[in-house]
């Protein structure tokens, strides 16, 4: 056999807007700050504990892994910290410390490092951590149980759980404005819709996040929820609940848009986003899980390489 010259091609992300990875990661952390602050105000010191522990252990795990694989330390690029932060935002404030530490281990090591580090990961690392914890310790993610000792002056029922178990009548009292302004129970960083939207729009304007994915995702949610609602308005909730409760907004701006696990071409981005939206509602309405966001994104992450192949053919020659 003759000697072949091989080109070494690295994985996504390829998108380059001139700024460094570090800058990008810190900008995303900046963008979630408002929603995060709202969560801390709402849940107090225990929420700070979860966030601090999550961010720090995510960094430690990555550092340890860097040392074990004797690579140059990558924690400086802020991605480990970002992973820890996003992960913490999806947890209830009463998450036990061991679950947080295990979770960041799964996120960083299993979600990212074993694939060769950032860029090689086929799934969003945060969601790998979430999914494994949600399957292993389902009860920890029962927000009604987790928040049992918190008192609020609004309906203290996790909206999606109430919807699933007791039907629409149990959450009638929730309005869109209430939901968006954080008058709902849920995870530390995912209940303050206005803050999440503001952060998302900021990232989109700065070019750190692709609007195509966020918008098509939200549209996917809206349309699918609307179809269900029109088919049977007594059983299914309308788009408002689905858009503004659970992990929807957080997922649309900060999870589905993760570089390495999402497409880069225009049409694929739209398909990718919409597919996650549709899948989320399917899981919520007919699946067993209360919130489908985590599994929907992971599932479509899996299809990402195929989706990303859909692109215009180069003109004039066979490919």
């Amino acid at each position: 056999m003759h000697k072949q010259k091989k080109y070494i091609v690295s994985h996504a992300p390829f998108w380059h807007d001139g700024s460094r990875l570090t800058t990008k990661n810190y900008h995303i952390m900046l963008a979630v700050l408002i929603a995060l602050a709202a969560g801390i105000v709402k849940y107090g010191v225990p929420a700070v504990g979860v966030i601090a522990l999550s961010v720090s252990t995510a960094i430690f795990w990555e550092l340890i892994m860097n040392k074990i694989t004797s690579r140059t330390a990558t924690i400086g690029n802020g991605n480990a910290a970002l992973t820890g932060l996003l992960f913490a935002m999806m947890l209830p404030p009463t998450m036990p410390w061991w679950a947080v530490v295990t979770g960041t281990f799964v996120c960083v090591i299993i979600g990212k490092e074993i694939f060769g580090g950032l860029g090689g990961n086929p799934f969003n690392p945060v969601l790998i951590g979430m999914a494994i914890l949600m399957i292993a310790w389902k009860d920890l993610f029962d927000f009604d149980q987790a928040l049992i000792n918190y008192d609020f002056d609004y309906l203290v029922l996790y909206p999606l759980a109430a919807l699933k178990h007791f039907g629409i009548s149990s959450i009638e009292s929730l309005s869109a404005i209430d939901l968006l302004s954080g008058k709902q129970t849920g995870a530390i960083g995912t209940t303050f819709g206005f803050g999440l939207i503001l952060g998302g729009v900021y990232l989109i304007i700065r070019g750190f996040v692709r609007w195509e994915i966020s918008v098509s995702y939200l549209l996917g949610i809206f349309v699918t929820a609307f179809i269900f609602k029109s088919a049977d308005s007594a059983t299914y909730a309308g788009p408002v609940i689905h858009l503004f409760s659970g992990y929807t907004l957080f997922g649309a701006f900060f999870l589905a848009t993760e570089d390495s696990s999402s497409p880069v071409n225009f049409i694929p981005m739209l398909i990718y986003g919409a597919a996650i939206g549709i899948m989320t509602i399917l899981i919520r309405n007919i699946g067993v899980y209360v919130d489908g966001t985590v599994f929907a994104i992971l599932l479509i992450n899996l299809a990402n390489p195929i989706i990303d192949k859909i692109r215009p053919k180069a003109m004039g020659r066979a490919v």
Binding site: V45, G49, L53, S56, G76
Partner: peptide
């Protein structure tokens, strides 16, 4: 350095909060 310092501080904060 920033990352390491941040991690150490947050870790302590986390322990205290818990």
């Amino acid at each position: 350095k920033i990352a390491v310092i941040m991690a150490v501080i947050l870790f302590l904060v986390g322990i205290v909060c818990y």
